[in-house]
Amino acid sequence: MNLRGVYAIWWREMIAFLRETPRLISAIVNPIVWLFIFGAGLGASVDVSGVDYQKFIFAGVLTQTFLFTSIFYGAYLVWDKRIDLLKSILVSPLSRATIFFGKVLGGVTISLMEALIVLVFGIFIGIPYTPASFLMSLLIVFIASAIFTSVGLTIGSMMESPEGFQLLSSFLLFPLFFLSGALFPLENLPGWLETVTAANPVTYVVDMLRGTLLGVQHFDTSHNLLLLGVFLAITSAVGVEAFKRMKS
C-alpha cells in the first residue's frame, strides 16, 4: 500500500462528491429529515433507560445516517465500472489494497461530514456535549463508517449493475439497523433477539455512541472497542481480497 496512492484515490472521491450536487444535497438533507421524523414523530413522552426517548434514539439516528451513506457508497464503485472509469485505475501500478483504502477513506470523510451535521443538531434536543464527548463521537464514527464502507465496497466490487447493488444492500441494511440497539434498549430482550443483536456491529456502534453522549451504556467501552476493532479487521481484509478479485 502506498500513501500517495491512497491520497490520489481519496482526492478524486472528494472532487467527485463535491461536484455532484444531488449527492451533496442529500448528504445534508438526509440527516435533518431523519432527526425530524424520529425526534418529533415518535415524541418525547416516554423515558427509556432513564432518558427521554428523543435523546435515547439520537445515537441511533446518527448511526443510521452514516450507516446508509457508507453502505450505499459502494454503489459508486459499480457506477465507475459502468462508465469505464475503473479500468484506468486498475491498469495503474497502484495495488488493489491502495485503491481499496483510498476509497474507504473517501467514504469515511463523507460520513464524518454527515455525522457532524447531526451532532450539531443534537445541541437543539439537549445532548449534553463536552469537547471530549464530541471528539470521541467523531472517532467512533470514523471507525464505524470504515467498517460499513468496507462492506459497501465489497458488495460493489462483486456487482455488475446498480440494481443488483441496490437489492443486496437494502437486504442487508434494514436488519443491520433495526436489529441493533438503535431504537430499543438492549435490556430484557427475548433470547433470539439478544443473539442477533450481539452479532451485529451496529449494536456496538450505537451503544458506544450513546454511552459517550448520554452516559447510558449496555456494554463496557473496552468490550465495544474490541469488537469494533475485530469487525474492522475482518471487513477490511475481506474488502481487500474482494478488490483483488475484481474484474474491470
Binding site: Y7, W11, R12, I83
Partner: peptide
C-alpha cells in the same frame, strides 16, 4: 475512461499521483 466530473488538468493530476 477519463473522469467526466474532473477537469482535464485534474484527470492528469490524478494520473500523476497514481
Amino acid at each position: 475512461s477519463s473522469d467526466e466530473l474532473l477537469t482535464g488538468y485534474e484527470n492528469l493530476r490524478l494520473s500523476a499521483l497514481m
